[in-house]
């Protein structure tokens, strides 16, 4: 983690119109203790075998999700399927570069997802800015803003690479190492500070799970 000074997060749901505040939770995110022993292993197995991807094509990477979710590569047979709502999804695929405007939606969608939630980042752009390293509108490292479980390098990574990435994610989940949700809760203020540094018009709720 960076040693950047952490700016205290403002009050919950600040920035929302009052009538909308009620739609969101006021509790800060918290960490969740994994269950014990075999129970957690079983749960992790189920989580790994039922990966529901949030259908949010944030960047070019979405283009290679199409072949993956259609018959040529057929990700359904691996228990992976797209889901149109963040509430029901467990995997967020960051499709490459994230512009500031999209990052805001990414953060919000990510927070709306129910834990345990996993993030797969595609392409160089998510690792170190990729070819948009000098753009004024794209972030360079997605891990500054949300925790990431698996990176797949490439531009674009092919569907096969994506598939391999999901297999890797499965392994990580089964090994109980995919604790992004807890990491996010643990370093919540750091993440928020990073997010707010970049997203200049912060008009969304801080607590949104």
């Amino acid at each position: 983690m960076s040693d950047k000074k952490i700016i205290p997060a403002p009050l919950a749901n600040e920035g929302l119109p009052p009538d909308e505040r009620g739609l969101f939770c006021d509790a800060a995110p918290r960490e969740y203790e994994p269950a014990r022993g075999i129970m957690e292993d079983f749960a992790n197995w189920a989580r790994s075998e039922s990966l529901w991807i949030l259908g949010f094509g944030t960047g070019c990477g979405a283009i290679e999700l199409r072949p993956l979710m259609t018959s040529r590569f057929d990700m359904y047979r691996y228990g992976i399927q797209p889901r149109p709502t963040p509430r029901q999804s467990s995997v967020f695929v960051i499709g490459g570069y994230a512009s500031v405007k999209t990052l805001k939606r990414i953060v919000r969608s990510y927070e709306q997802m129910m834990g345990p939630k996993f993030v797969v980042a595609l392409g160089s752009c998510t690792i170190n800015g990729g070819m948009y390293w000098d753009s004024y509108n794209t972030i360079k490292r997605i891990d500054q803003y949300i925790p990431v479980d698996v990176y797949i390098t490439g531009c674009m990574p092919r569907p096969e690479a994506l598939l391999a990435g999901f297999q890797e994610l499965k392994k990580i989940i089964r090994a109980g190492r995919a604790e992004g949700q807890n990491e996010y809760a643990r370093n919540f203020e750091w993440f928020k500070a990073n997010q707010k540094k970049v997203i200049k018009d912060w008009n969304m709720p801080d607590y949104n799970w």
């Binding site: 939770c25 969740y32 269950a35 079983f42 749960a43 189920a46 989580r47 075998e49 039922s50 529901w52 228990g79 509430r87 029901q88 467990s90 129910m114 834990g115 345990p116 949700q181 799970w209």
Partner: peptide, 13 residues
């Protein structure tokens, strides 16, 4: 698996 997965979600809203 999907049902098991859904049921072992850690948090809910």
């Amino acid at each position: 698996i999907d049902i098991i997965k859904s049921s072992v979600k850690r948090n809910a809203i």
